[in-house]
Amino acid sequence: MQRGKVKWFNNEKGYGFIEVEGGSDVFVHFTAIQGEGFKTLEEGQEVSFEIVQGNRGPQAANVVKL
C-alpha cells in the first residue's frame, strides 16, 4: 500500500489527485474510495491506496482515509 495526501478532489465530477512524496500525482475516482455513504476526499487528507493501471495510466484503488 502507498500513502499520500489528497492534492484536490472535485465532488461534482467525482475525481481528483493524490500527491505521493517523491513520485507523480495519482488520479483517484470516487468509486475507488472505501467506505459507506457519500464518497469524497478533502484536500490535504492522508490516505493509503494501491496503484493500478487504468485506461489512461496509473490510478488509485482501494483508497482508505487515514
Rank of each mutant, 00 (worst) to 15 (best):
Phe27Ala: 03
Val26Met: 08
Lys65His: 14
Ile51Phe: 06
Gln34Lys: 14
Gly23Trp: 07
Arg56Asp: 04
Gln2Trp: 13
Glu50Val: 11
Phe27His: 06
Lys7Asn: 11
Ala60Leu: 01
Lys65Trp: 04
Met1Asp: 06
Phe38Thr: 05
Val63Gly: 00
Gln59Trp: 10
Val28Pro: 01
Trp8Cys: 08
Glu46Asn: 11
Gln34Tyr: 07
Gly23Arg: 15
Glu46Phe: 10
Asp25Ser: 08
Ile33Met: 04
Glu42Gln: 15
Val63Gln: 00
Gly44Met: 09
Ser24Trp: 10
Leu41Trp: 02
Ala60Gln: 01
Val6Ala: 06
Val52Leu: 09
Asp25Trp: 03
Phe27Ile: 03
Lys39His: 06
Tyr15His: 06
Arg3Asp: 10
Val26Ala: 08
Lys13Asp: 06
Val20Trp: 15
Ile33Asn: 01
Thr40Ile: 09
Gly23Val: 11
Phe9Tyr: 05
Val26Trp: 03
Asn10Gln: 10
Lys7His: 06
Glu42Ile: 08
Asn55Cys: 06
Val6Ser: 02
Phe49Cys: 11
Glu50Gln: 13
Asn10Ile: 10
Glu46Val: 10
Glu43Val: 09
Val6Trp: 01
Val26Ile: 11
Gly22Ala: 15
Val28Tyr: 03
Gln45Asp: 05
Phe30Ile: 06
Gly4Asn: 02
Lys5Leu: 10
Val26Thr: 13
Gly57Arg: 06
Val52His: 09
Phe9Pro: 00
Glu42Pro: 08
Leu66Trp: 13
Gly44Glu: 08
Lys5Glu: 07
Gly23Lys: 15
Gln59Asn: 06
Pro58Leu: 11
Leu41Cys: 05
Val28Phe: 07
Gly22His: 05
Lys65Arg: 13
Gly23Gln: 14
Pro58Met: 13
Arg3Cys: 06
Lys65Gln: 10
Gly16Asp: 00
Phe9Ala: 02
Asp25Val: 04
Lys39Thr: 05
Thr40Arg: 09
Asn11Ile: 07
Glu19Asp: 13
Tyr15Asp: 02
Glu42Asn: 11
Val26His: 04
Asp25Asn: 08
Asn55Arg: 06
Val6Phe: 01
His29Arg: 02
Thr40Cys: 12
Lys39Arg: 12
Asn55Ala: 09
Phe9His: 01
Lys65Gly: 14
Phe17Glu: 04
Lys65Leu: 08
Gly23Ser: 14
Ile51Cys: 15
Val28Ala: 05
Thr31His: 07
Lys5Cys: 12
Ala60Glu: 01
Glu19His: 14
Glu12Asn: 15
Glu36Phe: 10
Gly4Met: 00
Met1Pro: 06
Asn55Ser: 15
Asp25Lys: 06
Phe49Thr: 03
Gln34Gly: 12
Gln2Leu: 13
Glu46Met: 13
Ala61His: 12
Gly35Pro: 04
Lys39Val: 06
Gly14Trp: 00
Pro58Thr: 12
Thr31Asn: 05
Glu36Thr: 12
Ala32Met: 05
Lys39Gly: 04
Phe9Arg: 01
Glu50Cys: 12
Val6His: 00
Ile18Leu: 14
Pro58Ser: 10
Leu66Met: 11
Lys5Pro: 03
Met1Tyr: 15
Pro58Ala: 13
Glu12Met: 13
Gln45Met: 10
Thr31Arg: 08
Glu46Leu: 14
Glu21Gly: 14
Val6Pro: 01
Val64Tyr: 08
Ala32Gln: 15
Lys39Asp: 04
Gln53Glu: 13
Gly14Leu: 03
Glu36Cys: 09
Lys7Ala: 13
Gly22Met: 12
Val20Cys: 13
Glu12His: 14
Ala60His: 01
Ala32Ser: 09
Glu46Ile: 07
Phe27Arg: 04
Gly37Cys: 08
Ile18Thr: 01
Val28Leu: 05
Lys7Tyr: 02
Val63Ile: 05
Gln45Val: 07
Ile33Tyr: 01
Gly16Pro: 00
Phe49Asp: 00
Gly23Glu: 12
Arg3Lys: 08
Asp25Cys: 06
Asn55Phe: 15
Met1Asn: 12
